[in-house]
Design a protein around this nucleic acid. Sequence first.
DNA 1: GTCAAATCTCTTGTATACAAGAAGAATGAA
DNA 2: TTCATTCTTCTTGTATACAAGAGATTTGAC
Lengths: 222, 222
Amino acid sequence: MGTRIADTIRERIEQMIVTGEFTDGERLDEVKLAEQFGVSRTPLREAFQALAASGLVTLEARRGAFIRHPDFVELVEMFEVMAELEAMCGFRAARRVTEQQMTDIALTIDACEAAIAQGDFDEYYRENETFHHLLYEASGNRFLAREAARLHKRLKPYRRMQLRAHGRMPQSMREHRAIYAALECSDSKDAAATLRLHVAIQGERFNDLMASYRQMASLKTG
Amino acid sequence: MGTRIADTIRERIEQMIVTGEFTDGERLDEVKLAEQFGVSRTPLREAFQALAASGLVTLEARRGAFIRHPDFVELVEMFEVMAELEAMCGFRAARRVTEQQMTDIALTIDACEAAIAQGDFDEYYRENETFHHLLYEASGNRFLAREAARLHKRLKPYRRMQLRAHGRMPQSMREHRAIYAALECSDSKDAAATLRLHVAIQGERFNDLMASYRQMASLKTG
DNA sequence: GTCAAATCTCTTGTATACAAGAAGAATGAA
DNA sequence: TTCATTCTTCTTGTATACAAGAGATTTGAC
């Protein structure tokens, strides 16, 4: 296997971070984690660097790596950017999407709805993620697709807590259908606008997110 | 001083990359660079990781770090995203910009024009960069500002070669004024549209960029 | 008792040593 | 000659050793 220890360590720590195993501002102890994972400090430090690059931790010179949870304001800001990136993807996808891609998108929408009907949330999240990734690809701009996927990944834990909000899923499904329809009509502006609304945090969803965030924050501190 | 060797190495290699000191696909030799800089492989490897995070090199497992110049298509894609990010900043800035920020922006515009009048291109690039960074800040979305600044930095060498195109600078100045005017009127849509056009690669500028790119590419290969 | 300075410990940053995989050279067979 | 296989060498990945800075603690003066 060509997998490096540093990469697996990175993923494991990443997982630990997004599942809230560390409190905000907490310092990641190199030696403790090293012996916990049964490796030396070297791959751990590499993992820290990668985590810092994706913004999950901050590295302070000669002080170490510190967990950096986004505060609520930053979270809203990130969703704001995500909404625009997705709108951008949708706008371009409406003109550039291929038949094959439309078929794939339709399939994920169906799979999403099936998952909801069966109450299989994990499957739902997976399919929903696929739906969005297909859209990024369909934009025809590979750089945009990568950037969108990057932010999407970073927002994963927060999107998850947001979608739990009551009644959100059926609404989300309607939006998926609307996005599909806009793409089918090659209506760039409609696709962009629908996607922007689909992702943006506003109205009731703002309150839902805030409530979830507070709950999470209170769990962290005590 | 709290500066780490790894950071300075990173900057130096980054500089070497953007000034075209490496050909596309070239492998960065750890040991050679290490002795060249008079350091061990450790900080070099850290620098490689950081460079990979910002996309200047790609790390292949057990093969090393390879220079990754964007091809022309990717370059256009990046400018496309940059244009939208700046438009996004402008849209928000039109509503949120403070008096102080407007003053600062006006100053940089003046400084830009003065620099052009004196033929001081380095000064022009500096002030132009400040202008855009002020706009990012003025968006009121700190995350957006960071992301915009990041992409802006990555596009730096290509923007530079593009602006050399004849007659581009006066036009660029007029656009700066137009952006300022849109902000003053709190006209979000106008600010966004003007910025999008200001940054986007289209029409003649597309050809200019392509020509410069080809020139650069030919320099690289021989 | 409080504040400041020096010391001490603990952690990170860097260098080096060692392990293991990948590319290339040499050898052999067809 | 050409292809495949083995072996050698070179490079990266990981571990460990060492250096040096940051923070805590203790000691001393007031």
